[in-house]
Every structure is written in C-alpha cells, then in structure tokens.
Simulated assay, not measured.
Amino acid sequence: MTSFVKKYRWSISFWVVQLMSWGGLVFIAYAFTPDMDGYKSSKVFSYGLVSTFLIGIVSTSLLRSYLKGIVNFEAFEKKQIVKILLGVACASLLYFALSYGFGYCVGKYSEEDVKVPEMYKNFGIGLMIVNSFITIFGWTIFYLSVKVAAKLNANRVERAELNATLRQAQLNTLKGQINPHFMFNSLNNIRGLMLEDVEKSRDMLTKLSEMLRYSLTKNNVNAINLEEELDMVDNYIALSKIQFEERLEFVKHIDKTTLDIKIPPMIIQLLVENAAKHGIANLKSGGIIKLTTEKSSDNLIIKVINTGKLMIVKGSTQLGLKNIRQRLRLLYGSNASFTINEIDGEVVATIKIPLS
C-alpha cells in the first residue's frame, strides 16, 4: 500500500512538472519570438506553439516509459548510457517528425496568408533535427537528475529509519542484559531471612517485586527521572544488605536540582551493582558505596565510588560496563561519557550526560 501511494504521488509530480516545463518552454518561445510582419499574432504561430507543447508532452512521456524500463539506479552500468542515448535519439526523431509534419500540414492547408520571417525560412531540416535533439536531451538530463535526487533522498530516509530501528533494537537488547543472578540470589537470601525475621522478609519481597516491575515496565522507554532510578537503587541496596549485612555501607549525596533530569533506566543500578559485586564482595571487612549527582556546566555528573581496587577478573566479560558505554553511545553519541578509575584506594565510576 505504501509503495502504491509513493508511486501514485511520483506519477502526479511527474505530470505536474511535465506540464509546467513544456508550458514554460512555450511561454519562453512566445516571449522571445520577434513579431515580424504580424507573424507572432497569426494563427499559424499559435498552432505552432500548441503543437510544440503537445508533441513535447507525447514524445517525452514515451521516452520516460522507455527510461523507466532500462535505467536501474541500484546497479547502473555503462551499457545503460548507450540505451539512454538511443532512447533520446529516437524521441528526438519522433519530436522532429511530428513537428515537421504538423508544420507542413499547417503551411499547406492553412487559409491564412502568413509572411514567414526569413530567419525561419532558412531554418533547414538539419537545424531542426539538431534543435530537437538538444531539446529532448536537455529534458532527459533534467528528468534523470530529478530521479537521482529522489532516489538519494529515499535512500537517506530509509537509512535514517533503519538506523533508528537498529538503535532501538540494540537498546532493547542491552536492557535485556541485566544480570539475572541478583534476582535469584535475592530470593535465596529472602528465603533464609524468613527463618529469622518474617516481617522484614515480606518487606524485602515487596522491594524485589518493585524492582522486577520496574525492569519490565521501563524496558520500552529510554529515559526516566533520576529520582525514579534512585528509588530502585535504594531497593537494590536494601536487598544487598541481606547478604552483606554490616559489611555494606551506602551513602548518597544527591543534588536536589538533578532529581527531575532524564537518564537511561537502570544505568545507576548497574554501577551500584558492579560496585557491590566486584568491590565490596571481595573485601572481608566490607566497605562503602557512595553515590553522588551534580550539575556541571551543561552536563549531569553521576559518580559511584566504592572501597577497593579496580581489578579486571580473568575471563570476565565486563558485560555491565560494556552495557553502560553502548547505551550512552546509542542515546547521546559522543556527548556522553563513562569512565572508571582507581583513585586513592577507591574505584570511581563517572557518567557524564548532556542536559540538552
């Protein structure tokens, strides 16, 4: 249906341009023809203009049908040039033959006594053929130029749509790469907690269900308020403390002016999860995870800092870190950045997101 609509629109556009171009040519011929001995005001001259318009429409429309069948813009070859020139030659001869034939008939059978200026009497058959070829060749160049421009524009739109679809598919795939082991570990930890504190275990189940709902409902969006993400981080920390107990301390320093800023969902949670899994979990005495947000110039700065050393475990896929980098690149291009460094016995992960 879409292809039919596009084809229909292109057909209408062609006929509009066709009528306007030949109409314009006839107008120019009328405007610049010298009125010698009343020739310009004669019926013969008027017939000539009308015939030029109609013959031009017929010959170039037939040429267009021919070109549509032999020109392939997807795989253009040199032999197509020969075919195009052959079509132009045939259309030029048709244009000349019809024009000459019409002119001959008008001159022979017209009852109007018209004095044809000498400049037109000397316009021989050879010059008429050359003029016909130049006219048709010029029309062909214009037609092919419009077709090429339309094709390039269609390709540009198609590439843009394809890139947008690909970007969305990549984002959805990345969102689906959230580590599921945390969910299973949380369920096991809550099951153990039930033997000690039933009320707390119920509260933890509620937080876990909220996290699951959050990950499912936000899978189709690319941005949420920072405040909403922080609520899920709090739930994550609460569930993690069942496992780490007193070994995990969590500190937040949140600039209130950043709470309404849009960020990719689950991106802070990934940082906090990475800090807990690869930082605090490896320390016998535990450590601190600090989360800070602030505005700096035209950017939102998010930092997750944890006690420990930056170690790349052998065989690790670093899926979480790759996930963050790819999502930022897909959403913001080079305007966003993600770095992770070890500074004075702490691992500092920093995300910079443009505010506009």
Rank of each mutant, 00 (worst) to 15 (best):
Q168M: 12
F73H: 05
G308V: 04
Y332H: 09
W15L: 14
V17C: 14
N235E: 05
I125G: 02
N188S: 09
N153C: 09
L193Q: 13
V106C: 09
D113S: 15
A91E: 08
K43A: 13
S201I: 03
M36H: 07
K314C: 07
N188H: 04
T33M: 15
I312S: 13
K314V: 10
A75K: 15
I288N: 09
S13R: 10
N122F: 10
L330D: 06
L85Q: 05
R159Y: 13
S21K: 04
M119H: 08
S92K: 05
V17H: 11
K175Y: 07
K314P: 05
A160K: 15
L98M: 12
L86T: 13
T60V: 08
V71P: 06
L226T: 03
P180S: 03
L144C: 04
K314R: 14
K309L: 11
N163L: 11
A349I: 05
L259P: 01
S61P: 01
L321K: 12
V348F: 06
V16R: 04
I57M: 11
E196T: 15
K7A: 11
S215I: 05
I289S: 06
G333K: 02
V44S: 12
F182S: 01
G138F: 11
T350C: 08
V304G: 07
Q243D: 08
Y332F: 12
S201Q: 06
F184L: 11
L19W: 04
I254W: 01
A29Q: 14
E246W: 02
T257P: 00
D197K: 01
S316I: 03
K303V: 05
W10F: 14
F338P: 02
V157W: 09
F4L: 15
S110L: 08
L205D: 08
P354E: 02
L205F: 07
G320I: 00
L171D: 00
W22S: 08
D35G: 05
F32Q: 10
N179I: 02
I261M: 09
A29W: 10
I280H: 07
G126P: 06
L319M: 15
L226F: 07
K151D: 15
A29Y: 11
T52N: 15
P34K: 02
E246P: 00
K78W: 13
I134W: 05
G192P: 07
S132D: 08
V157I: 14
E74N: 15
S186L: 00
L195Q: 13
M1P: 10
Y95N: 10
Q80M: 14
M211Y: 01
T339Q: 11
F184V: 01
A29L: 14
K68F: 10
Y39K: 05
L94E: 01
G87E: 12
T339F: 11
H181W: 07
K40D: 01
V233L: 00
S296L: 14
D197M: 00
N172L: 11
H278K: 03
K207N: 03
V251H: 10
D255P: 05
V114M: 06
F142G: 09
T217I: 11
L98Y: 03
N222V: 02
F102S: 09
F133E: 04
L271K: 02
S316M: 07
K303I: 07
K352P: 06
S92T: 03
K83H: 12
K78I: 14
R329A: 15
E346Q: 13
L212F: 10
L86M: 12
N335H: 12
